[in-house]
């Protein structure tokens, strides 16, 4: 029994420590890998950093199944606004490590699945 109690206490402490670290991280300056993006997003940067995937996923189901296509939470809007110009003056694709999504996802080692189907550059005029 004492073993179980010790384990529970240890788990609780660990959870508290992790929460504390995360909470502390929220207000502080982002790590150098984060790109300081000039201009306004659909929400402030700390919120977007934590929630962009939920916004996108929510929007994706609304769009694909309901045909609801508002401009502000679409992936196309993201890659259009956040386009990074390469040496040739054209926006880089996600194959380039300077791509906005990659600068952070490379650091956090989270695989982005979006661009296996979606284009990673702004839409070209027809």
């Amino acid at each position: 029994m004492t073993g179980v109690r010790t384990l529970l206490i240890a788990l609780g402490l660990a959870a508290a420590a992790v929460t504390g670290v995360l909470a502390a991280g929220e207000g502080t300056a982002p790590s150098p890998a984060f790109r300081q993006w000039p201009g306004e997003c659909v929400a402030d940067a700390p919120f977007m950093r934590r929630n962009h995937m939920d916004l996108l996923k929510h929007q994706r189901d609304d769009t694909v199944h309901g045909g609801i296509r508002p401009a502000n939470h679409s992936l196309n809007a993201c890659v259009t606004c956040h386009a990074v110009k390469g040496d040739d003056g054209h926006p880089v694709t996600v194959a380039d490590s300077r791509h906005f999504c990659r600068t952070c996802h490379d650091t956090t080692a989270v695989r982005v699945d979006c661009f296996s189907c979606h284009t990673s550059t702004p839409g070209v005029a027809k």
Binding site: T93, S116, C117, H118, T119, V124
Partner: peptide, 10 residues
């Protein structure tokens, strides 16, 4: 690669 913005395919 190079999908159309309104037509994702992968």
């Amino acid at each position: 690669t190079g999908q159309r913005p309104g037509s994702p395919r992968g």
